[in-house]
Simulated scan of single mutants.
Amino acid sequence: MFKHIEFVKSIYDLKDLPPPKFPEIAFLGRSNVGKSSLINAILNRKNVARVSSTPGFTKAINFFRIDYQFYLVDLPGYGFAKAPAELQKKWKYLVEGYLTAPRDFRLLILIFDIRRTPDKLDINLVEFVKYIKKPFCIVLNKIDILSKNEIDKQVKNYKEALRLNPDFPMFLVSCKEKENIEPLRKFILSKIKSH
């Protein structure tokens, strides 16, 4: 389990990115997908990432240093309809700029709400990550809300819509019930130690 978790800084401008001294694990997802809850569940802490009742709360790129081994990076949520166009443009500039910067990306964790059907924004995100050739995995969150049959159906939908191989790494989790958090944590650690 992680012992030392330190908030490093919030980035509102790419020129303020911390030096890439550590490997990086970055979390991306829609504004209301449970990204902060997932980060807190993986770190086994209550409030490292701020959980907000207002979707789209994270407007900066937040860096946390974990056990002096890697950066955990919380990216601003996308797809929040009420965000003004200017803010959406800024999100694109920040996130795309960060993801294409010369940094030691070990894993991008793309989080989706399993109850939703992937839309154009979700598909574009996956296509972009494939295009920049960064290692990534998919996390389908909120499985506690669906039945086994509904989960199986949605997994199939996601694999087809996002054009993923049948054996592509996909984690089905419930932050609320802490279900399948440990396999994801182990997967993250294996990526940190794989170099």
Results as ranks from 00 to 15, higher is better:
107 L>Q: 05
26 A>K: 00
56 G>W: 10
102 P>H: 09
76 P>D: 01
59 K>Q: 11
98 Y>K: 01
55 P>F: 08
18 P>Y: 07
31 S>L: 10
64 F>D: 03
97 G>S: 02
18 P>I: 08
69 Q>L: 15
40 N>C: 14
51 V>E: 05
42 I>Y: 07
82 K>D: 14
30 R>Y: 04
72 L>S: 11
107 L>S: 05
30 R>T: 08
44 N>E: 14
91 W>L: 05
79 G>A: 07
71 Y>I: 10
68 Y>W: 08
70 F>A: 09
106 R>H: 04
49 A>S: 11
109 I>G: 02
90 K>I: 12
77 G>P: 03
104 D>H: 06
89 K>P: 00
22 F>L: 15
39 I>A: 13
96 E>L: 11
83 A>G: 04
85 A>C: 04
96 E>A: 10
23 P>R: 07
84 P>H: 07
24 E>H: 11
93 Y>I: 14
83 A>R: 12
37 S>M: 14
29 G>P: 11
91 W>Y: 02
76 P>V: 04
65 R>F: 06
85 A>Q: 13
66 I>N: 11
74 D>L: 10
99 L>R: 00
35 K>N: 09
36 S>W: 11
76 P>T: 04
97 G>H: 04
56 G>N: 09
38 L>N: 02
32 N>R: 10
54 T>S: 09
63 F>K: 00
81 A>N: 11
36 S>D: 07
76 P>E: 09
32 N>D: 09
82 K>Y: 13
41 A>S: 15
55 P>T: 07
109 I>W: 02
48 V>P: 02
71 Y>S: 07
108 L>A: 09
38 L>I: 14
46 K>R: 15
20 P>I: 06
63 F>Y: 15
102 P>D: 13
63 F>D: 01
41 A>F: 12
100 T>D: 00
84 P>D: 12
48 V>R: 06
35 K>R: 08
56 G>S: 05
38 L>H: 09
22 F>I: 10
65 R>N: 07
76 P>L: 04
75 L>E: 00
67 D>W: 11
30 R>V: 12
23 P>A: 08
52 S>C: 02
37 S>C: 13
54 T>K: 13
48 V>L: 10
98 Y>P: 03
22 F>G: 01
17 L>W: 05
82 K>T: 14
43 L>M: 10
67 D>I: 08
19 P>D: 05
46 K>I: 08
19 P>W: 04
40 N>V: 10
42 I>H: 05
39 I>Q: 02
93 Y>A: 10
80 F>H: 14
46 K>G: 12
62 N>V: 07
107 L>F: 04
17 L>T: 04
109 I>D: 00
70 F>V: 13
37 S>L: 13
20 P>Y: 05
92 K>M: 12
46 K>L: 06
93 Y>R: 15
111 I>L: 14
34 G>Y: 10
33 V>F: 13
24 E>K: 09
81 A>F: 14
51 V>L: 04
58 T>M: 01
30 R>A: 12
90 K>P: 02
27 F>S: 05
101 A>P: 02
46 K>C: 06
20 P>L: 06
110 L>T: 03
